[in-house]
Simulated assay, not measured.
Amino acid sequence: MWGEIPLGKPFGIELRLHVLFFVTLVLAAISQAWVSAYAVAWAVVLAGPVLLVTIYLHELGHCLASKMVGADVHYILLWPLGGLAFVGHSSSPGRDLFVAVMGPLMHLPQLAVWVAILALSAHVVHYPWHSSLHLPDIRSHFWLAVCVGAAWLNISLMIFNLLLPAYPLDGGRILVDLLLLCRVPVKPAAVVTVALAICVAVLLIVWGFVETAILTIAVGAWMLYTTWELVMCIKNGTIEAHPMFCYEGATSQPRSAAPPRSVAPEVMLPAHQPRSAAV
């Protein structure tokens, strides 16, 4: 696909970087340009190598979980709004729930590593630990500021993706899987998913305009765009064919009246839809 740069196959999974990812660096630099050169450097480090590694490990969690449940793994794409893990369709809501959760949970070990590095670094430079979770002066404690920023980046992305029940974020997939596991029929589950996704997307766009956060606006717009696909599936009566709902036994009618149906064939489904560190 246009603009995708191959970065090898770490852990046997192809990794690609989209050239538009560098837009994130430009926006990060602009956001701190009025502060100082040190602030610009700090923002670029966080939005560059730190964010890349953070997103990659998140998507790697999805991919490794997919392999564990027997689904095919195709590749990982890092792009301006975050990351996409292209994996095969899971065979049940329970397995898909496992795949969806493993991405956000990858932020826990990353957070532990950054906090450990922060504690050690603060001890070396005699920076008081009780206040080191707050952003220190970037000019005098640049590395500590990077550690603090990386720690909060992992916290925010984990909360955003795990607890925000909005499609196409991980939280939206988790919501769908839980609804299906609770034997909620497909169409009502899809309607709930669409309603929540639209509300969250609109709030993100409004927040983005208030805070002048371009990436936040872009994430909200992307959520509306992808949610429209679900809206059309519901309208056309094809929601059961959508990868998030096409499990054996899933139906728009109550489960007790549902005839058995086969699982849909292998599809290319992003295990984790775009999200941005700017949100």
Results as ranks from 00 to 15, higher is better:
A241W: 10
A241C: 05
A241N: 11
A241E: 09
A241P: 03
H242E: 13
H242M: 11
H242Q: 13
H242K: 13
H242W: 15
P243A: 14
P243T: 15
P243F: 14
M244G: 01
M244C: 01
M244S: 08
M244P: 02
M244I: 05
M244T: 10
F245T: 08
F245M: 12
F245L: 13
F245H: 09
F245E: 07
F245Q: 05
F245S: 13
C246P: 03
C246T: 00
C246S: 02
C246G: 05
C246F: 06
C246Q: 00
C246D: 07
C246V: 02
Y247Q: 03
Y247I: 10
Y247L: 07
Y247G: 02
Y247N: 03
E248V: 07
E248P: 03
E248H: 00
E248L: 02
E248G: 06
G249P: 09
G249C: 04
G249V: 02
G249T: 05
A250F: 08
A250H: 05
A250R: 06
A250D: 01
T251I: 02
T251C: 12
T251E: 01
S252Y: 08
S252W: 00
S252K: 05
S252E: 08
Q253L: 02
Q253D: 06
P254F: 12
P254R: 09
P254G: 05
P254Q: 08
P254I: 08
P254C: 07
P254E: 10
P254L: 10
R255P: 04
R255E: 10
R255N: 12
R255L: 12
R255S: 09
S256P: 01
S256C: 07
S256M: 11
S256T: 07
A257T: 11
A257G: 07
A257Q: 13
A257S: 11
A257C: 01
A258F: 08
A258C: 06
A258S: 15
A258Y: 05
A258V: 12
A258H: 08
A258I: 05
P259A: 09
P259Q: 11
P260V: 02
P260Q: 02
P260H: 02
P260I: 02
P260L: 00
P260D: 02
P260Y: 01
R261H: 05
R261M: 04
R261A: 11
R261P: 01
R261S: 12
R261G: 08
S262M: 03
S262L: 00
S262F: 04
V263W: 03
V263R: 02
V263I: 06
V263E: 01
V263C: 01
V263A: 04
V263F: 05
V263T: 01
V263Q: 03
V263P: 00
A264W: 00
A264F: 03
A264C: 11
A264G: 00
P265W: 04
P265S: 06
P265N: 07
P265K: 03
P265C: 06
E266A: 14
E266I: 12
E266Q: 15
E266F: 09
E266R: 14
V267S: 13
V267I: 10
V267M: 13
V267T: 14
V267P: 03
M268Q: 13
M268L: 14
M268A: 09
M268E: 10
M268R: 11
M268I: 13
L269N: 00
L269P: 00
L269E: 07
L269Q: 03
L269R: 01
L269G: 04
P270K: 07
P270V: 07
P270I: 08
A271N: 13
A271P: 03
A271Q: 10
H272D: 09
H272Q: 12
Q273N: 15
Q273I: 14
